[in-house]
């Protein structure tokens, strides 16, 4: 298969970036998207050109490192898929493919397709945890949790922190990411003692980081590779309102 790639190239945040066009030729349909970029990069180096920098690691859809906007879709057009799981067979032969980095003020660009997502870490550091110290917990079975609640907490905990929700949101909002953690910890008994403080501090950190507001477009849940639903955002809203009354 052959493709024409339009790739965002930008040396560093201070330089102006632009799209550059590359040909990806003779690509096997079994190649994954990132492997296709590997091949292009090998050729670029051989030709004496700088390779395209992009983030990636596990290449099996769980670490959350990879992610670009492909032809206008975060992680590409396939639903419930990370970029590393996208295969070239899902494109048309000869297709023009636009590859852009996540765009958001809270995700400043580092170079080419790499962005800095440490704002997500900052949000978790503000309260995305249960404050216990190692060695002091009760027995695992001392805290029974109804199966459906535990399952629901798991669904929310499936978030891989890739940032596709922010990238796809017309407002670059991080509400889906924050709501996933709030929901996971808010559903289980262990998370109750800090529930109201947690939501306040995580939301404050989110606002501080410069993300946009949720206006209920639903693009986040459509782009989320783990298919986390935007219902969780309603829960986050509710918890924040309650937290104002509780204390």
């Amino acid at each position: 298969m052959n493709f024409t790639l339009k790739v965002w190239r930008q040396k560093n945040p201070n330089n102006a970036g632009r799209f550059r066009t590359y040909a990806a030729t003779d690509i096997s349909s079994d190649t994954s998207f990132l492997e296709m970029l590997d091949i292009v990069n090998e050729q670029l180096i051989e030709r004496g050109d700088d390779p395209i920098a992009f983030d990636h690691d596990c290449r099996e859809g769980i670490c959350g490192t990879c992610g670009c906007v492909i032809n206008g879709f975060a992680h590409g057009h396939q639903e419930g898929t990370t970029l590393c799981q996208l295969h070239m067979r899902s494109f048309d032969d000869g297709q023009v493919i636009w590859i852009e980095p996540w765009r958001a003020r809270a995700f400043p660009l580092i170079t080419d397709l790499m962005v800095d997502r440490s704002s997500f870490d900052t949000i978790i550091q503000a309260g995305g945890f249960i404050s216990i110290r190692t060695g002091s917990p009760p027995d695992g079975n001392a805290i029974p949790i109804p199966k459906d609640e535990s399952d629901a907490a798991f669904e929310a905990a499936a978030c891989i922190g890739c940032g596709a929700c922010v990238a796809s949101c017309p407002n670059a909002s991080a509400m889906l990411f924050v709501s996933a953690k709030i929901t996971q910890l808010g559903l289980v008994p262990q998370g109750q003692p800090e529930r109201w403080d947690r939501v306040k501090s995580m939301v404050a950190a989110m606002e501080e980081a410069g993300f946009g507001a949720c206006t209920n477009h639903g693009e986040c849940e459509a782009a989320c590779p783990k298919e986390i639903p935007m219902d969780l955002i309603a829960r986050l809203n509710r918890d924040l309102v309650c937290s104002m009354v509780k204390k």
Partner: peptide, 14 residues
């Protein structure tokens, strides 16, 4: 929150 906009942006849900 998005100072640089996308060249190509597609919507699925909104």
């Amino acid at each position: 929150s998005r100072p640089v906009r996308y060249q190509v942006q597609q919507y699925r849900e909104t």
